[in-house]
Design a protein around this nucleic acid. Structure first.
Length: 426
DNA sequence: TCTGGGGTCCTAGGACCC
DNA sequence: TCTGGGGTCCTAGGACCC
């Protein structure tokens, strides 16, 4: 059986764990997006106040305050570390696990050796609560898509007293009952576009979708949706990539805290993002062969002149050195930066990744041997590891970082190093 | 007054090869 | 008037996920 385990209101739980003055079960709590503009995570109490996903912060802060609730900003260092603890604990109970996202993991249980699946689910729940402080829901079924359906049912408020947050779909009757009560748009893999198209055909529930002919789905939709239909019928067809396995690309991007017009400030942001991307790259023990820089104005502000542009540079050799990559990145920025625009977004993508020990294509006519991380970068890494992130950094990154997103409401990095705190003062 | 930051896979179409 | 019959590789864009 496949098991899907996910954390209830993950980001809110991560913050609330270190702020016991806010009772997760009663106090309205939420977490805001990176620039503190919108609500991206909610507990039940704030949902009960009719605060929706994506609501603007300024629209809801009054009602939250009035009900003695609290809104946090985002701290992805903290969230990442808590996520790691969640996955590590869960992996004690399951095999063939796949870390699917920050707050979700798939894994298997052997039904031959597990008499009572529901009981196992509750054991996992209490272990995670006791050892990591998190509340989770579980779905179990013969395919990943059906396990997701189970966890979707486990979340439903009206059934919570009955399910206790664990739903096992181990008979055809249970599967069909759950599918019948699940709107087709809530099935994993059915997005809003597909939902509209399906509804126009009279396909309203998960059960309607399950009954459709796979070859017709392939013709009229895609092989992706066809796999979903197969999974609803108990045939395993969806493959997933673990978030910690080798990636195809690494992207670091941010919306800036203010509209930036100055090229030097853009340069700082590009250098800072490139440095982070290069750090990630080395953590995956990989090299990149292509770097893209993209910049853009605020596309929501129709009154402003719009400009969006990206520049890809193919590197002459696979590279993992911060200084080299920063040099290419700033060169790319110079080629696309146009004065006179108010920039809001900037990012870096590293692509065509290869591993350091294999897959390396060397130059036929050059003396360059197998690649290693440049000595300067290795020294930087060592110093920054010992004395904290950014102890030494390129001058291009700058010092003031006025363009940084707003984060005054973000929780500190409680579980990691002091030097990882979001601001020096905090 | 606000509008995240990551990822994946698939498909169509163009450029190119013989 | 006619205009082969196969292929591959790459890219952009769409749809989806959290």
């Amino acid at each position: 059986m496949w098991v899907l385990c996910d954390i209830n209101a993950a980001y809110v739980s991560f913050c609330a764990l270190f702020n016991p003055q806010y009772n997760m079960d009663r106090v309205p709590l939420g977490v805001l997006s990176s620039n503190q503009g919108n609500v991206i995570a909610r507990n039940q109490a704030i949902k009960d106040l009719n605060v929706k996903m994506g609501d603007a912060a300024f629209n809801v802060c009054e009602i939250v305050k009035h009900n003695n609730g609290h809104l946090w900003g985002s701290n992805f260092n903290l969230f990442g570390d808590m996520s790691d603890r969640f996955h590590t604990e869960l992996e004690m109970f399951l095999f063939d696990t796949i870390r699917y996202s920050v707050d979700e993991s798939f894994g298997k249980v052997d039904v031959k050796h597990t008499q009572n699946l529901k009981k196992l689910g509750h054991t996992i729940q209490s272990a995670l609560h006791r050892n990591v402080g998190l509340t989770v829901g579980l779905g179990m079924a013969s395919t990943k898509t059906l396990a997701k359906l189970g966890s979707h049912c486990a979340k439903q408020q009206q059934w919570k007293a009955h399910t206790g947050g664990v739903v096992v779909l181990d008979t055809q009757h249970k599967v069909d009952w759950a599918l019948k009560h699940c709107p087709v748009g809530d099935i994993w893999g059915v997005g809003s576009r597909t939902e509209t198209k399906l509804k126009a055909m009279g396909v309203v529930t998960g059960l309607d979708l399950k009954k459709l002919d796979v070859s017709i789905i392939k013709q009229q939709f895609s092989v992706v949706l066809a796999r979903t239909v197969q999974e609803l019928n108990g045939i395993n067809a969806v493959e997933l990539k673990d978030i910690q396995s080798n990636r195809d690309r690494i992207c670091v991007s941010q919306s800036m805290g203010k509209a930036v017009t100055c090229e030097n400030e853009m340069m700082e942001a590009v250098a800072t993002h490139t440095t982070r991307a290069a750090n990630k790259l080395r953590r995956f023990e990989s090299f990149t062969s292509a770097i893209t820089i993209f910049i853009g104005t605020n596309s929501f502000d129709k009154s402003q002149a719009q400009y969006h542009k990206s520049q890809l540079i193919r590197l002459p050799f696979p590279c993992a050195d911060t200084l080299t990559l920063v040099a290419y990145a700033t060169y790319a920025l110079k080629s696309i930066f146009k004065a006179g625009y108010k920039y809001k977004k900037v990012g870096v993508i590293l692509e065509q990744l290869s591993k350091s020990d294999t897959e390396q294509q060397l130059e036929l006519l050059s003396d360059v041997g197998p690649l290693k991380v440049d000595k300067r970068t290795a020294v930087l890494d060592e110093i920054n590891k010992k004395f904290g992130q950014s102890t030494i950094h390129t001058a291009t990154e700058g010092f003031n970082h006025d363009w940084r997103p707003k984060d005054n409401l973000a929780p500190p990095s409680y579980t990691t190093k002091l030097s990882d705190l979001p601001t020096a003062k905090a």
